[in-house]
Design a protein around this nucleic acid. Structure first.
Lengths: 237, 237
DNA sequence: ATTGTTAGATGATATATGTCACTTCTATTT
DNA sequence: AAATAGAAGTGACATATATCATCTAACAAT
């Protein structure tokens, strides 16, 4: 991991001119003084594919801004791993340790090469508290996160493999790649972890979908052929 | 459901003198003016055992304060139900619809007779935004909720029945009844929904635990005999 | 080119858990 | 006291899914 401290002036941040682009949803809410203090307390860090950005259990000392690339959010539990979601740039990574015990409750791993920006958590707290519209946004984001977790819980506990894999494929197609056809950096094992099943089961079920003409896939290239059927499988469980 | 509007003066609220006791974690953060405005916009509502306090999918118009009794929080999905947690007085019930789409994402059902207080959501929002220490508390609570959901996800997706039922028993003993011995209002079916298994499986596994001397149970009276074993089952999955 | 290594794929088998039909118990009503 | 209803409990059986061993394909290192 390549780490360097970078000083950006306010204009650069606002112009998206550097490695650390503006997060419309966050930095735009700050005034110039606040941007300056962020500026003097940030580190840009690059990660290569597969590297660990955050390790579950470690102390939460910085909020991490993902400026380039994608990352996997992993819940590790007793040898097994649940792939919770994929983060795409631009994103602010700050787990539920905020205002609780300041530990990381998930791991984050780079999917492909990524660039990040580390901002000291105390500075982040100061800025958020002093900015009412940011507070509203924070609460909104947390509640959205909770809603997603409810959906995940329902999917993973109540649906069979077909439904769970359908959910994963819909998520990748709609939320992450925003296209019916996409090439993913995820391995079969990632897809399995995301759908809470074993490697073999994921491969088998993908094959079933392919045989039934619901999807087409060659290696990492996927194409959703019959979205209605996927949605139906998702509903039926 | 028995509904009446009640006017309380500030002193009564602070003295816990009425049907709607002080929530130390919320009302204590308010000043007298804020308490007055809460006061003139509240309804006390009583529910009998089994009655629905909140129905999943309905609009979120009020924050509900649980002043007496216990309630089940249910995630309904496609015919099946996951019992997420038990709320005990005093508690503020406000789901993730806040600041998002103002709908209820779970149902809440009275466990035994309960008393509640309905506070208009807009008033609640005003008060929370104008009070910095409340905002911190809100974010803390939301993050704790997320941490709990992570645990629930890990438990329900990665553990076998023994581990999941052990988790449920530990939760009831430690968090809800705060004793190794307790009499619960929950039915076997509730325990099953909480552990994400069928009725029959829950009863069978409870019997296994009883046969192995891990717990003792007669009807709704439970006694945890070997907590270490439960903790071990929870860890092993 | 050859070797080694990893991800992907496939099949046989074991097992955990759900389904369903049925019995027993308990409490409530008449 | 009898009748009814609902919850608790039991058992036989079906099946979804994991486990594991094996095989192939792709690709990097020598």
């Amino acid at each position: 991991m390549n780490m360097k401290s970078i000083q950006l002036n306010e204009k650069e941040i606002q112009d998206k001119g550097s490695g650390c682009e503006v997060i419309p949803s966050f930095f735009n809410l700050l005034n110039s003084e606040q941007l300056k203090s962020i500026n003097s307390n940030r580190f840009q860090v690059s990660f290569k594919a597969g590297e660990t950005i955050i390790k579950q259990g470690s102390p939460l000392t910085h909020v991490i801004y993902l400026s380039e690339g994608k990352a996997k959010v992993l819940l590790e539990s007793f040898g097994q791993t649940v792939l919770l979601k994929i983060l795409s740039k631009p994103a602010i990574i700050c787990g539920p340790g905020l205002y609780t015990d300041y530990r990381h409750y998930f791991s984050v791993e780079a999917l492909g090469d990524t660039k990040t920006c580390f901002v000291d958590i105390n500075l982040f707290k100061q800025l958020t508290l002093s900015n009412q519209s940011y507070v509203m946004k924070l609460v909104t984001d947390l509640n959205r996160e909770i809603i997603n977790l409810y959906d995940k819980l329902k999917s993973l506990t109540q649906k069979h493999m077909n439904g769970r894999l359908a959910d994963t494929l819909i998520y990748l197609s709609e939320d992450i790649y925003q296209s019916r056809e996409f090439t993913t950096e995820l391995s079969r094992s990632d897809i399995a972890n995301m759908s809470c099943m074993t490697n073999g089961s994921a491969i088998r079920t993908l094959k079933d979908f392919k045989d039934d003409g619901i999807i087409d896939c060659n290696g990492n290239h996927f194409k959703i052929l019959k979205k209605e059927v996927l949605l139906d499988l998702s509903k039926k469980g």
